[in-house]
Every structure is written in structure tokens, then in C-alpha cells.
Design a protein around this nucleic acid. Sequence first.
DNA 1: TGGATGTATGGGAGCGCTCTTACAACGTTG
DNA 2: CAACGTTGTAAGAGCGCTCCCATACATCCA
Lengths: 337, 337
Amino acid sequence: MSRVAPTLEDVARVAGVSRATVSRVVNGTRNVDPELQETVRNAIEQTGYTPNRVARSLVTRRTGTVALVISGAGGGSDVFTDPFFGRVTAGVVDFLRGHSVHPVLMLADSDHARTEVVEFLRQGSADGALLVSTHPADPLPARLLEAGVPSVLYARPGRPMPIGYVDMDHRAGGRLAADHLVAAGRYNIATISGPMDVLASQDRHAGFRDAMARHGFPYVPTAEGGFTAESGAAAMHRLLTECPDLDAVFAANDLMAQAAVDVLLEHGLRVPEDVAVVGFDDSAPALACRPQLTTIRQPVERMAAQMADLLLAELEKPGQRPRSVIFEPELVVRASA
Amino acid sequence: MSRVAPTLEDVARVAGVSRATVSRVVNGTRNVDPELQETVRNAIEQTGYTPNRVARSLVTRRTGTVALVISGAGGGSDVFTDPFFGRVTAGVVDFLRGHSVHPVLMLADSDHARTEVVEFLRQGSADGALLVSTHPADPLPARLLEAGVPSVLYARPGRPMPIGYVDMDHRAGGRLAADHLVAAGRYNIATISGPMDVLASQDRHAGFRDAMARHGFPYVPTAEGGFTAESGAAAMHRLLTECPDLDAVFAANDLMAQAAVDVLLEHGLRVPEDVAVVGFDDSAPALACRPQLTTIRQPVERMAAQMADLLLAELEKPGQRPRSVIFEPELVVRASA
DNA sequence: TGGATGTATGGGAGCGCTCTTACAACGTTG
DNA sequence: CAACGTTGTAAGAGCGCTCCCATACATCCA
């Protein structure tokens, strides 16, 4: 099309007005003669003008983008295979698009990468950060805070700090699972926890254990997993060795629950007849699993959208007290328990 | 930290040099006295200076970001649940991060959204576009081309146009599946195709059918699916009605293959003993499925990385003839066939 | 009628950076 | 020793935009 993009100046010349007037028409359109507006609009049409967002950003100090930072502790970029992050992304994108804000995706899985994220934001390349950080020891929240970057977390920070976040009542989720299993008349109940250095895992486990204790089961056989299918299968094997007569398993996410079901089936055990299985999250694998998983729903998309909402609010009027929003889990009964 | 960010000017004042010198140190560092460099570096340290990327972009005409556009025809943002897009994202992010380029995520699932994408790029908010477009009728490639936006596609465009892309030899993939099934001694072979308005689906199907014909099977019972689990299950049901004695199914992606397996199992058929199933993609569901899926591998991550590579090359030296790279599929034999 | 108020427009500074140009200081060469 | 690079630095224009301020004119009430 055009070799060199037309500028405000060009439009102004064509319309026979000043740059300022064109700018007014392009933006707020306040106090411009309707007739002149028409002229300017024609000139814009004629020249094929598109405002240069970068130039605008330079003076407004706003880019219209936010960083969506996946601070996965672990192994590189296969985080995107995890349905959880896909759901977060979906929720964020879906919310932001309605506000003409665009997320730029960043992975913060190494110290180098984290520094790059902080730099990126300090340089004003994005207006703020949405931080999906699972590790309580993650230094990124504190560093962003220190750098004065408006940020909101998914999951509460490892130690208290004045930063907004969305989270879920994971303990309540654990309780829901225990209640359901006990109410179903199960007696030998075990659990596959998530990685214990993740707060969400600790909470789900604590909630589950507490409820079990209240139901008269002071000890719950536990195998720690890593939120992946493989780790879930391995944990299930350990559990089966420790207590071959178990009749129920609560897994801290669906991926592990699905793997657990597979292992049980391979051992000739029927699900849910012989062993009931409850998952967590209510993500795609819960439905793909046979039998379909009874699970604890985490409204990831809504939470992600809320996180984005909090950030935009903070950008809108900075310096507010950071807010947090906690979501309630929900038991979803399907075939596996 | 700092209320107002220090600028080049501030650093220059502290170091007692000119802005230009500081700029040289920050960037190319050509022709600056080592001693002075040291002084400047100290000044940078002292002031906590970070270059303002926006200001830099304004003059260099480069933002260091590219748009990753998911031009899903269909239903909004649940595309991120599809493992395919997760893999694309992973491949892109992984490649770009090594080049200090960041992807901004955009969904182009409506005409409005498409216009916004074009605007975004015309405004110079990103240096180029990575377009994951499945629909041959998608107007976006042509519009980006027309707008002069450097772009690379995932999957060849619906009609020939001078734009680079990566793709796979889907026909060869279909052939691989047919060969494998026939070699395994299957006789009543059916297939669940992808949506027929998608080129990849057409190609996979054509390759499969051609190979089948060459093997002496001129007619292949076909049910069209939509690449989703539900559509796969529905297609499997139809196939079972049409030819109850089938002994093999080739599904055009793993999601549908997995669903097909479930339906077969529900019907009391054993996989692979009674019915062999071959999937396509080799994505997460292929491994999660029981039995694990024999499938045709599409190296999505590598393709996505290649796509990003092509775009960066085009940005590096514009005006080159657009390039395309075709990847070969690979048969992955597991338990299901 | 005159000052006060309000509305529409233009002029121009300035956002923070890069990059070209000019120039000073230093060799190096025929 | 004049003429010529070579190298290191400063000065300043300019990227395209927003926004403040000045100006011009219309409108109003006392």
C-alpha cells in the first residue's frame, strides 16, 4: 500500500487545519466544529491515515498492552501443554480484548528470563503485569513491586506483600473432596497431593486432611505428585503398594487423577466400583477421562478475567490499595466417584 | 523506587558527557573511549537508568514484538483448550525469547477482531504477524499482505499469494496412516475426517483415500468431524451404524481419535484387537488415551519455531521472496493400531 | 458598553530516544 | 610540513504524537 505511512501532519495539510485539530478529531473529539470534523474525517479517509501507536505511547505513557507472565518454576515452555495455562490465557485474552488491551506473553522460568521481564516492564513496554506464579519462593512478585510495576497475581504471593491477586479457596476444595468421598461411604481413602512447595497444593491437602480428620480419619495415606500425568501415575503406584486395599483417591489435579485412573484400571480395579477417584480443576482431562472425573471445579477462566480486571482498574486509577478476590470451589459429580 | 524514570539526559549529566555518548554505550558501543565507557556505566548504575523502549521504537521503527494471531474461525477463546494452539504458542515463545522478541496474543475470530488486528499492525504496534489460520476463506492473510505487514502463516493460504508459510505434508500423513493400517491386515477401514473446509483436513483425507485406493480399497467410509472430541464421538457413532463390522479407523486428529476409542470401548469393542485406531498430530491426548494412540506426528513446535524464524528473517531484510517450509509427518506406533 | 465567560482553533513545546553532521584532537603519509 | 585520514565527542534535528497555552471570536449579564 503506502510506502511511508501518512502522519497527523499530512492529514492536517490535506484538511487545511492544524495537527492539534486532527488529533482532537481522532481522539476525544471535544470542541470541534461538526463541519470541520467532517472535513478532517474525509482527509483521514483520503490519506489512509492510521495513528502511530508508538508515538502516542511515548507521550501518554501508556502502551495498551500488559505482560502475561507465566512464572513456571519448571521445565521451559511445555507449560503451554498444561490445560491450566491454556485456560488462564483464554480468560485473560477474552477479557482484555473487550478493553482494547493486548497481552504479551512472557515466560519467566529462569533468573535471566525474570530479569528480562522486569526490564521489559521498567522500560515501559507494557503497562502492567499479570503474573501466574505458582512457586511461593518466586522472587518475581517482589521484584515487580520494587520496580513499581503495576501487577496482579494469580494465586496469593508466598509472603504477604502489597500486591493484588486472585485466588481460590483451595482448602475448601480439599474439604469438598473429603466430604464427598466420606459421604459415599468410602473408608480407605488416600490422596495424591500436588507439589508441596506450591501453596495451592498445601492448601488443597490441608483442607482435605482436616476434613478427613473431622470425619474420623486422622491419618490419610499421601503420595506427593508434581501435577503431571507421569507423577500422578507414579504416586498411584506408591499408594497401591502402601495400602492395597484403598477404595478412594483424591488427586490434587485432573491430570494426575486421570493418570491414577489408568493405573487403577491396569491393576484390574474398577472405577468407581472398587476405587473412587476425585480430581481437581475440572479441566479438559476430567471430561476426556473414562470414567469421567468427579472433580472440584476451579473457575480458572473467570479468575483470569478477574485478574485482568483488577490490573486494568489499577492502571485506571493508580495507587489504590491492592485488592484480592477469592473464588469458591464447587464439587462436580461425574462418574468416577 | 524512582518516581520518575531517569532518562538518557540524566545519565549524561551525571557522567558529564553528551546524550549521544551514553546512547553509544548503551547500544553498539562503537568508538567510545574505554575509560569514558566506564564512567558512563557507573552513571547508569547510579541513576538506575533503563532505556525507554517506546522512545527507541519511535525512531527505530521497531518494537521488538510480533503479533501471534489465532485466526480461529470458530467459537471464541476456547481455542486455547485445544492442545494444538498450546503447542504453537510453546514453539513460538520458545524461539522468540532467544531473540528478545515478544509475542502479543491476538484472537481474530470475528470481522471486528480482524480489523483490529490489521489496525494494530498498521499502527506499528508490532513488527509483524504470525498467523495461525486454518480457514482457507480467512480474509486476514490477504488483508495483512495488502497493508504491507510482514507476515508468515502456519498452513498455506487458501489461494496462492506472495506470503511465507510453514506447513506439513498432510497428504503424506494420510498415506502413512493408510499404509500402516493395511499392512496390519485390516480390511474394513473407515475414517473420521476433519472439517472439510480446512485444507489440512482435505489433504489428510485425500492422502489417506489415495493410498487406500492404491491398496485396493476404492471406497472408504467417511464421517466428517470438527477436530473436537464431541464431533469425533458423534462421527464414530455414525461410522458404527454405517459399517458395524469395521476393524480400523483413521481419525484426522488425536482428540477425535481418543473420542472414537471411547465410543468403541463403550460398544464392547476392543482396541486394537477388534478395531485399530490411528490418530493424527501426536499431541497430549495421544499419550493420555488408553490404549495409547498410534498416530501421525505433526512437529507443531518445530513448525511454529520455523514460522517465527521466517518472520524474523523477513524483518531482518525485508523484501525477500517469501519462503515456505514443508515438514514431513512421521508414523508413531503405539498401542492402538 | 464593557468585562467576564465560553468555544473553536492554531502554535509550539516536549515525550526519550537515535543518528547524522560537525568538529576537535590526534596520528600518518608523500 | 601540508594534506589527509581516523577516532572520539558534542550538538541538534527529528521520529509522530498529545496537550498546554495563546488567540480569536461569539455570547452573555450587569
